[in-house]
């Protein structure tokens, strides 16, 4: 008896503090959030549960549906953009561009800036004035003779959200580059040599040898960027402010509901957001878990 406690006691004690903290502050609070979303909580006052009424209200609310559409577009653009630029830069550096260290730092550096700080600058860059009074990017486009490219940026009702993806891509591409670069470095030189000896063209080498080796890296990048993107809030608050319609996403909607005292609906938005992120993360966790079991 005593020896058994001796064998599993210390490990349990060691993980107990984190388990308790996570249990209370993550899972406990998720539970509290879901529970709140089922009540009619207004500014802390509640008369009891109302079932799924808050969720019904949300999905009947045009603005919320619009915000879901926005976040889907934003995520698509953000993930595609960072993967494209990240891979491109990693590929260029991997091919032995001179001054690699400098370029690596240059591309990675935007990540060190907070979304709020860069958002303030991008707010100015993405000024929606055109023609004579243009400033920011529109002015720049005008000066280099590309005036026809001037746009309303994030104030456009249909595509506005994609303008917010620009700063996000600018900031996170370097990070994806670092991921890919590590991926490239992890591929043994012998594999390439073997492929070349077998007469593979450069394209075949990438297609059949390097890409398969890089796919786990790409998957990680999609998961990391994707879940960041679904939770976007700070960047939009800094660029467009909380009530701006064209850039509404679930994050800002949740804040607005909370500010106007609709705590239950805010909790419901939080729950929807959690579920959406879970749809992305859980399959990934399961697949890595299985992969580790196989090993």
């Amino acid at each position: 008896m005593f020896t058994r406690i001796r064998s599993w006691g210390p490990p349990v004690l060691l993980i107990a503090p984190t388990l308790i903290l996570l249990g209370i502050f993550v899972y406990g609070l998720i539970g509290a959030g879901v529970w709140t979303s089922l009540t009619d909580n207004v500014r802390g006052q509640t008369t009891g549960t109302v079932g799924l009424e808050n969720y019904e209200n949300l999905f009947n609310d045009d603005t919320f549906v619009y915000s879901l559409r926005n976040v889907a577009m934003y995520t698509g653009a953000f993930v595609a953009g960072t993967l494209f630029f990240g891979f491109l830069w990693a590929w260029l550096l991997e091919r032995g561009a001179r001054g690699e260290g400098i370029f690596r730092a240059v591309y990675l550096f935007p990540m060190a800036v907070s979304f709020v700080a860069s958002g303030v600058v991008w707010r100015w860059l993405l000024n929606s004035n055109t023609g004579e009074q243009a400033s920011g990017l529109n002015r720049l486009l005008d000066m280099v003779g590309l005036g026809f490219l001037q746009g309303q940026w994030w104030t456009h009702e249909g595509w506005g959200i994609l303008a917010i993806a620009m700063p996000a891509i600018w900031q996170l591409s370097g990070y994806v580059m670092a991921l890919f670069l590590a991926g490239f470095r992890g591929i043994p030189e012998e594999l390439r040599e073997a492929a070349r000896v077998d007469g593979a063209t450069e394209w075949q080498l990438y297609r059949h040898v390097l890409f398969p080796q890089l796919s786990p890296v790409a998957l990680s990048a999609v998961i990391i960027i994707g879940h960041m993107s679904l939770k976007v809030f700070d960047l939009i608050m800094a660029v467009a402010g909380q009530t701006n319609y064209t850039t509404q996403v679930p994050g800002t909607q949740m804040w607005l509901k909370y500010t106007s005292g609709e705590w239950a609906e805010a909790a419901a938005i939080g729950t929807v957001l959690l579920l959406v992120v879970a749809v992305l993360i859980v399959p990934y966790l399961i697949s890595t878990y299985r992969a580790e079991r196989r090993r």
């Binding site: 603005t63 104030t155 009702e157 009530t243 701006n244 319609y245 500010t259 005292g261």
Partner: peptide, 16 residues
Amino acid sequence: VKWSTAITEAVSSFSA
């Protein structure tokens, strides 16, 4: 606050 937030959202949408 709730009412004026709803109006602000409507006016912002009109601006677009």
